[in-house]
Amino acid sequence: MSVTIDITGLPHERIIFCPSPLAELGNALHALAEPAHHPRLHAWTTATSATLEPELADRLVEADFMWRSTRSDFLMPPRPRETLAEELDDLDQLDDETFVGSALEISCNSSRYSQGMPSPLTDGRSRRRALDLAAARGPRQAAFVERTLADPTGTRAWIRRLLEDCDRAFFADAWRRVQVQLAADARHKTDLLRRKGLAEALAATSSVLSLEEDGHGTRIVVDKLVHGRTEAGSTGVTLLPTVFGWPHFFALYAPGWQPVIQYPAAAHEVGGAESVETVKLRLEALTHPMRMNLCRHLARGAYSTSELADSQDITAPEVSRHLAVLRKAGLLTTRRRGRYVLHQLDLSVVARIGSDFLESVLR
């Protein structure tokens, strides 16, 4: 499964890498709401939560469906600005229908996301869906969505004040610390795009991203556990680096919105950001009891096929078949010693399986 962004005919200068303070604030709020997703931020989430004023903490809980399990679309701006205030000003320019629709899009795994739905302010079905999704997240979220639909202008102002209060309370300091790294990451990717092309820039960004070119056009493919498709048209594609967002990898592909990709900055990626297919292949390779027995030996040293066959009391061809599965999954290293080929478990790869799996399902 993947999200595909058709960029056929799009000039490369309309593909931009740029940090966004609003997007990073959304990531920081998610980390506070779901600290288990972000073990590397444990010290920051613990310290920040401990110093939050109770009134601000209560307001964050009231609205956290916009960033807890996914991201409301408006938290991934297609035209990043230098400051949070400028990005909030841009949000103020959206009409109520567009803003509310983007704020309440809280189930991006739904197939209806890629098809687009009318605003819940004008469409009864969309309204019922928004209320049902909010109710599933608890009475406070249900009440918040009801208030949003009844008074979109007032609720939008409430959301802006909430984000501004978060900026004053903790985010401004955090943004100063990460802004330099994010800007450097974006400059590096932009330089690669100009000098070596989009394929190189995407490869340097993450193995989650790839470029497909054929007779039907050119596409950016995002390896995700969802399926979606959109077209960049003439508007462009924006790629937002994040520190607070690791290990999540988001692709905004709602109809009518410029495509946006949010990716973990390079220094914060773990294990090479393996593809979902690779993680699946490795997990399946380890489900067979005989391969697990072989791994017990191969984890302790290098062995030939015949040595493994003797230890397991099976034939050498059987061992070879099991080794082929482990090798295809990238779990083995091999080296030649005279006329023998020695196999050994790649412990560094095995050690990453847990984090690779976690990253793939949180992507």
Results as ranks from 00 to 15, higher is better:
Gln141Trp: 10
Leu332Lys: 04
Val222Lys: 00
Ser320Gly: 14
Asn293Asp: 15
Pro247Asn: 10
Ala57His: 03
Ala23Leu: 08
Leu294Arg: 03
Leu10Tyr: 03
Pro77Gln: 07
His288Arg: 11
His268Ala: 06
Ser311Thr: 11
Arg14Ala: 09
Ala36Gly: 12
Leu149Thr: 06
Arg291Asp: 03
Asp96Lys: 04
Ile15Gln: 04
Asn293Met: 14
Asp92Lys: 01
Pro80Cys: 10
Ala299Cys: 10
Gln179Ile: 04
Asp90Lys: 04
Gly215Leu: 03
Arg296Phe: 11
Leu88Phe: 01
Arg59Leu: 06
Ser110Ala: 15
Trp246Cys: 09
Thr190His: 05
Ser114Val: 12
Arg137Leu: 10
Glu212Ser: 14
Ser355Trp: 10
Leu240Asp: 07
Ala157Tyr: 02
Glu146Met: 04
Pro139Arg: 03
Arg352Asn: 12
Asn27Cys: 15
Thr278Asp: 00
Phe144Ala: 11
Leu198His: 09
Leu133Met: 12
Asp89Cys: 05
Ala103His: 00
Gly354Val: 03
Cys18Asn: 10
Gly215Arg: 05
Glu82Asp: 13
Leu88Gly: 02
Met292Thr: 14
Cys295Phe: 12
Ala232Val: 04
Ala63Thr: 01
Arg291Cys: 06
Met1Asn: 07
Trp67Gln: 08
Arg129Val: 15
Ala201Lys: 01
Ala199Met: 00
Gly330Leu: 03
Leu326His: 06
Arg229Gln: 13
Thr48Tyr: 09
Val349His: 05
Leu163Ala: 07
Asp310Arg: 14
Thr153Cys: 07
Gln141Ala: 14
Leu94Ile: 02
Ser275Ile: 08
Asp64Pro: 06
Ser119Met: 02
Ser119Asp: 02
Asp132Leu: 10
Leu121Arg: 05
Thr334Cys: 11
Val276Pro: 01
Thr278Val: 02
Ser114Trp: 11
His227Trp: 10
Met66Arg: 04
Val341Phe: 07
Arg81Tyr: 08
Glu359Asp: 14
Ala203Glu: 12
Asp89Gly: 05
Glu200Gly: 07
Ala47Pro: 05
Arg336Cys: 03
Trp246Val: 11
Ser49Lys: 01
His42Cys: 11
Glu55Gln: 12
Ser348Val: 10
Ala186Ile: 03
Pro259Met: 11
Val222Cys: 15
Val243Gln: 05
Phe170Glu: 02
Gln93His: 14
Arg296Glu: 11
Tyr303Ile: 02
Leu94Lys: 05
Glu284Trp: 04
Arg291Gly: 01
Arg339Thr: 13
Val276Gly: 06
Leu60Met: 09
Pro152Gly: 01
Ile261Asn: 04
Asp89Lys: 00
Arg339Cys: 08
Val226Phe: 08
Arg327Thr: 12
Asp96Glu: 13
Arg160Asn: 00
Ala172Ser: 13
Phe244Ile: 06
